[in-house]
């Protein structure tokens, strides 16, 4: 446990010194938000009175969180490919502590990035109707999502041999929100996509965020979102332990 705390401090320091990666993780969702709101927004009728900005922001938040968390794969691969892993192992640091350090740093990075993206959204007209409790719930769901995706991407980092390969996970996370209700309502998509789009993990997360921010009935979406995240996290934690042992055997 104390190893994980020390390694979190390390991972945070390393992120601070690799600011361009952190900035990209922030800039890209902001740019995409501009694209959606100003280029596509006029053409998309989401059937809500609050305007497309408010409809799309939860999707952008998710994109931001997914994209930012996926960089964990790269930081983990860098460690595994370098000499430092031998030193850590000879200090009897466990794979879980190492991954936990990277994941914790990812959560902190993403907390900052998410706050900034919310700020920009406000500047361009995002006006949610959420009360303080709703905001707390939004933060909780985003946190769970970031945690789950970060740990999952750490698993990819343990599989990938090069940072470039690990970067492929970022790509996957950039696409997952599109076949969901993140940017356009699902019923505007072709029939064959409904099954996937309606049941993939991003969809309840989006639905819950949107309902909380617009002060609408949340229904089951919040619990579904949390179950998905909890399930992914549990699998990723177990998987990362196995992968680390296999990688270092």
């Amino acid at each position: 446990m104390s190893d994980a705390i020390v390694l979190t401090g390390r991972a945070v320091r390393l992120s601070r010194r690799n600011l361009d990666a952190v900035l990209t993780a922030m800039l890209l969702p902001v740019l995409l938000m501009f694209v959606f709101v100003y280029f596509f927004g006029g053409a998309i009728d989401t059937g809500t009175r609050t305007g497309y900005v408010t409809y799309v922001v939860p999707g952008v938040m998710l994109l931001c969180a997914g994209f930012g968390s996926a960089s964990t794969a790269v930081t983990v691969t860098n460690d595994m490919a370098g000499g430092i892993i031998d030193r850590f192992r000879s200090l009897d640091v466990s794979g879980t502590a190492l991954v936990a350090g990277h994941v914790a740093a990812s959560v902190l990075r993403n907390a900052v990035a998410t706050t900034i993206v919310f700020g920009v959204a406000f500047l361009i007209g995002f006006r949610p109707d959420a009360g303080p409790l709703d905001w707390l719930a939004v933060a909780g769901i985003l946190l769970a999502f970031i945690l789950a995706i970060s740990w999952l991407s750490a698993c990819f980092g343990l599989i990938a041999r090069t940072p470039e390969a690990a970067g492929g996970f970022t790509f996957l996370m950039m696409f997952l929100p599109y076949p969901s209700s993140a940017f356009v309502p699902i019923d505007t998509m072709p029939d064959w996509l409904h099954g996937f789009a309606g049941h993939q993990p991003v969809t309840p997360v989006i639905a819950a965020l949107r309902a909380l921010l617009l002060d609408q009935p949340v229904g089951d979406s919040a619990w579904q979102a949390l179950s998905w995240c909890g399930g992914i996290l549990a699998v990723a934690v177990a998987l990362s332990g196995v992968l680390f042992r296999r990688r270092t055997a």
């Binding site: 010194r17 000499g83 430092i84 192992r89």
Partner: peptide
């Protein structure tokens, strides 16, 4: 592991720290 230390053939420190 508690009794030993290893300095490998290739550097094992964080260049960015």
């Amino acid at each position: 592991r508690r009794a030993i230390s290893l300095t490998g053939q290739y550097a094992a420190v964080d260049e960015m720290q």
